[in-house]
Amino acid sequence: MSLIKQSGGFVPRDRDRHPDGLTPPYKTSVKRSPQAALLSFPSSISEETSPVFGHGLLGELGNDLIHNFAQAGQSAIGPRIIVHGRVMDESGRAVAGALVEFWQANAGGRYRHKKESYLAALDPNFGGCGRTITDENGNYEFRTVQPGPYPWPNGMNDWRPAHIHFSLFGTGFAQRLITQMYFEGDPHIALCPIVGTLKSQEAIDDLTAALDMNRTVPMDSRAYKFDMVLRGRRQTYFENRKEGL
């Protein structure tokens, strides 16, 4: 009996799980969405491999947004939280050694970006980005301040719910994913046209982190748990080969 082959091709992406390209209530999508059908084909080694990121690229404070941009002895302003979770694939296996990048607005809802025009104040001690690598069990965590909701030019009065952006690498480039984490209980979730690109309440719930009292640090930080799932591979010991080869 041979072991299950762990590096099979990827199962097809479940497009029903993701937003369509064209979602008119999110206006920018109208002229940035392809109109032709996507070309389907089985994954090959080009999509089943992915770059390797060593721990050498992680600074000491890569996963501490409260301090990674702050002056010595200072810290970012806002509700202190820990965000943690596990990265798995669709088979439930841990994705170890995965690069996770995250970025967010400050506690007032302001990004540190030259194109940002919201009048909320910049925090001189908050940059708004970090990165980490999942451990052997697929776990990650970082420390930050809870971002604020912010207005954005779309409809006349659209506001984003508080959110953190995530970028994920897996073991194959086909798993590459960017998504957003929302916070349990935020009334803006139901009102946001970008959240509204999701096709089901289940999809929205799966991007909404729960308050996790078990991981809070008393008198220091609250905690939110946010698991993420990347595409899975076929698992088989039956190779697909032409007869006679």
Partner: peptide, 11 residues
Amino acid sequence: TLRESPSQTAG
């Protein structure tokens, strides 16, 4: 089986 995390725009 689990379902893949839904994508959201990079913004």
